[in-house]
């Protein structure tokens, strides 16, 4: 199945390219993402210092420390570079959890219909209206602060929109002739769902995944800013938290809290641009000759 899935993803990407050259938002998004991926992968080579190594505190930006140092003298530029790893890691994994849950809920709901659909979509509606951040705060406060708990907490609450989109796609697909003929040939439900329906929903799921990464990165930053992040990991949100709670903000040490915010903003933007570009293209494909 995974081979088939990978094949379908590349097919979806190829189909997208064939439909026209990638638009500027997608290109800019991909470029930004490439920069952050390079920072994350080559963090030890790029950062001039060990981000955990203490030194002279509160140094303003200079030749030796491009973005100065924090309250215990750690090099802020190196912290930023290593922070890319944590922020992307949390973003990807939380998005993966949420999209996996949402896909399963949407598949079952759309394929089984009837009572199962009612129950699953009712549950989706309920999760959707509960204010996410306050609930995440409670969950994160009661569990020990760790990066995995944050991933689970975000994943557990972010799946609703994926579930809805996948469900409506499945409702369309299950009535299509090729599904009918598979059923006519005696294929079982599991076979139809995983071999025929799932591969055809991948394009929708991919778009949702990309947007979920953006949402998860923003949420991780918010939770970390509130002091609920993993103290053993340097994420951009944690840097903002330290800068805010340990005097960087009150004293106007802008070099401490502006760079992590810019990084969050640009990294989130890269995913939003890619996701937005994909959605635009689908809208265009739906109404080719309009205006």
């Amino acid at each position: 199945m995974s081979v088939c899935a990978r094949h379908k993803v590349s097919e979806a990407v190829l189909a997208g390219i064939r439909r026209g050259a990638p638009s500027w938002p997608v290109l800019i998004g991909l470029l930004l993402l490439a920069i952050f991926l390079i920072l994350a992968i080559f963090a030890p080579l790029i950062s001039p210092y060990d981000p955990w190594e203490p030194g002279k505190p509160f140094l303003p930006p200079s030749g030796t420390h491009p973005f100065g140092t924090n309250d215990i003298g750690q090099d802020i530029f190196s912290e930023l570079v290593y922070g890319t790893r944590i922020s992307l890691f949390v973003g990807f994994f939380a998005a993966f959890v949420s999209v996996a849950v949402g896909t399963l809920v949407g598949l079952f709901s759309g394929y089984l219909r009837g009572a199962a659909d009612e129950v699953l979509m009712g549950a989706t509606d309920i999760v959707l209206i509960i204010p996410a951040l306050p609930l995440m705060i409670i969950l994160a406060a009661h569990t020990s602060p760790s990066i995995w708990n944050i991933i689970i907490v975000i994943g557990a609450l972010w799946w609703t929109s994926t579930a809805r989109v996948v469900r409506s796609r499945v409702l369309q697909l299950r009535e299509m002739p090729f599904v009918e003929s598979a059923r006519g040939l005696g294929a079982g439900d599991a076979y139809i769902v995983f071999r025929h329906i799932l591969p055809n929903t991948l394009q929708v799921i991919l778009a949702k995944f990309i947007l979920a990464v953006a949402g998860a990165m923003l949420t991780e930053a918010s939770l970390s800013f509130l002091g609920l992040g993993d103290p053993l990991q340097k994420s951009w949100g944690m840097m903002l938290n330290y800068a805010f709670s340990r005097g960087g903000f009150i004293n106007g040490y802008w070099w401490w809290y502006l760079p992590p915010g810019i990084c969050i903003s640009l990294a989130v933007l890269s995913f939003v641009l890619i996701g937005f570009g994909l959605e635009e293209r689908e809208q265009k494909a739906m109404m080719p000759s309009q205006l």
């Binding site: 903002l240 805010f244 903000f249 502006l258 969050i264 903003s265 933007l269």
Partner: peptide
């Protein structure tokens, strides 16, 4: 295009960080 670019950037920026910038 210009308005969408600006508003997407705003959309991607954490509000509390924007607040810190505004205070600065």
């Amino acid at each position: 295009s210009v308005m969408t670019a600006i508003l997407l950037l705003l959309y991607s920026t954490p509000g509390y960080w924007l607040a810190m910038l505004a205070v600065l």
